[in-house]
Design a protein around this nucleic acid. Structure first.
Length: 422
RNA sequence: GUGGGCGUAGCUCAACGGCCAGAGCACCGGACUGUGGCUCCGGGGGUUGGGGGUUCGAGUCCCCUCGCCCACCCCA
């Protein structure tokens, strides 16, 4: 029986690493320039953290979490989303300090686990790059995290991205809306599915994303949250849009997005790209003004963002963005004949110790084979060491791009290669 | 979770139920005995995802299983 990787997971192989590093490094660079500090939290947390923050009735909690009991009987869960762990750390590690007005800006790149049916762009382990800005209600911050994501997409060559935004209200206006929704559904209550009859009582909003066809029909004409916002939320939403316009970011109002996590308040947004089939959301997020307090911290408004890296890479490829080609680099040391082996080995060691990329052919193949490999593997130079060079204490250095070849004293090779860089 | 499609060489794919499962690319070697890319010639590579069944005979048909993919759904 041969082992297979678990369903819905993937190995990221060396030849895929360049595009991963490009995405990760670009994200880190952007976060730095936007003023976000990187944080790493554990890959698992108390199950309860996610149940209480994400919401018991959400798909994520009710059927997608990797939950297990450790040997001490604790219930732990593999991180199914990025925000709750950061919020937990924000509180536990007292990142805000004594200044309650202080804005704490954090970013992370982390694996995320959800038990879901795999599909292209949907995995049981995927990676998210995210940011969280905690401590302020300023609508400019909503626009800032959106701007950061947009800038990342642009930098990575993902040109066809649409931004969908919505406002899901707050503890003031949501209950008002919920009442309206209940009134709307009250008459047809008996026609709802079993789950929805329960949801109607406990978490009415969830009726809106029931999958049962009959329930969907019943909610089609339901009132919309955006139309029922309180003054504060309406004002905030307008201000966010104003800030986006100032940044030159186009958007589309979409009244039905982000209902997957209970903690969102006010702004909710999503980025969709073309060419990805049905898994087309390459990023999303929103404001969660009540979450920190709900997790046991001081009342702290916040806004955050998550970007699915696998989907970002898929979107790049769909748009024909090749992984940037590495420039020719380093020295392939070619040993001709047995006599030359040890000196060649020593020479490669010297180069490596000096920080210069170097390799040689442990199979001791023909000169031709070694030259072919040096070229195919993308080396900048071939340093040839044979009988002649051994006798003279030299090395023949061939530039593989131009074909120019010169003879150097062996002791000058490191300095020569180093000077040629740049 | 529901419905469907597909698994053959490292990769992309051929092969009516019938001879030793092939091709292109890649890889290796040679032509070129100390010089890469181009060309030509040659070569190595396969548990046909796995298991069972039908059949004189299975890559091909049937069942089970694993995986990938598509739509729904969900989201990143």
């Amino acid at each position: 029986m041969r082992y297979q990787r678990p369903r819905g997971t993937q190995d990221i192989l060396p030849d895929q690493m360049p595009e991963w590093l490009l995405a990760e490094n670009t994200f880190r660079r952007l976060c730095h320039s936007f003023g976000y500090g990187e944080i790493r939290t554990p890959i698992f947390e108390d199950t309860d953290l996610f149940v209480r923050s994400v919401g018991e009735d959400t798909d994520i909690v009710s059927k997608e979490m990797y939950t297990f009991e450790d040997r001490g009987g604790r219930s732990l869960t593999l991180r199914p989303e990025g925000t709750a762990p950061v919020v937990r750390a924000f509180i536990e590690d007292n990142l805000q300090g004594p200044d309650r007005e202080r804005i704490v800006k954090l970013c992370y790149i982390a694996p995320i686990f959800r038990y879901d049916r795999p599909q292209a762009g949907r995995y049981r382990q995927h990676h998210q790059a995210g940011v969280e800005a905690l401590g302020s209600m300023a609508p400019g911050l909503d626009a800032e995290v959106i701007h950061l994501a947009m800038t990342l997409y642009t930098a990575l060559g993902i040109t066809k991205v649409s931004l969908l935004i919505n406002s899901v209200g707050c503890p003031v206006c949501r209950p008002v809306y919920v009442v309206k929704l209940r009134e709307f559904l009250a008459g047809s209550r008996e026609e709802l599915c079993d789950d929805c009859r329960r949801r109607y009582e406990t978490n009415t909003l969830r009726v809106l994303d029931c999958k049962v066809e009959s329930c969907r029909r019943l909610t089609d004409g339901a009132p919309k949250q955006v139309d029922e916002l309180c003054d504060e939320c309406a004002e905030h939403f307008a201000a966010v849009q104003e800030h986006l316009k100032v940044l030159g970011i186009g958007f589309e109002l979409q009244p039905r997005i982000v209902r997957g996590l209970d903690y969102y308040t006010k702004t909710a947004f999503e980025f969709v790209s073309t060419g990805l089939g049905s898994q087309d959301a390459i990023g999303g997020g929103g404001r969660y003004d009540g979450l920190v307090e709900q997790c046991g911290g001081p009342p702290t408004p916040a806004v955050g963002l998550g970007i699915g890296l696998e989907r970002v890479l898929l979107a790049r490829r769909a748009l024909g963005q090749a992984a940037s080609q590495e420039p020719r680099e380093g020295v392939f040391v070619v040993a001709v004949g047995d006599e030359a082996w040890l000196p060649a080995f020593a020479l490669s060691g010297e180069l490596r110790a000096a920080g210069i990329t170097a390799d040689l052919d442990y199979r001791r193949r023909s000169l031709r084979a070694q030259m072919r490999h040096a070229d195919a593997a993308g080396f900048r130079w071939a340093a040839i060491l044979g009988e002649e060079e051994l006798a003279k204490g030299t090395v023949a250095l061939r530039d593989l791009a131009s074909g120019e070849q010169q003879e150097l004293n062996r002791g000058d090779l490191v300095a020569h290669c180093r000077n040629a860089d740049g």
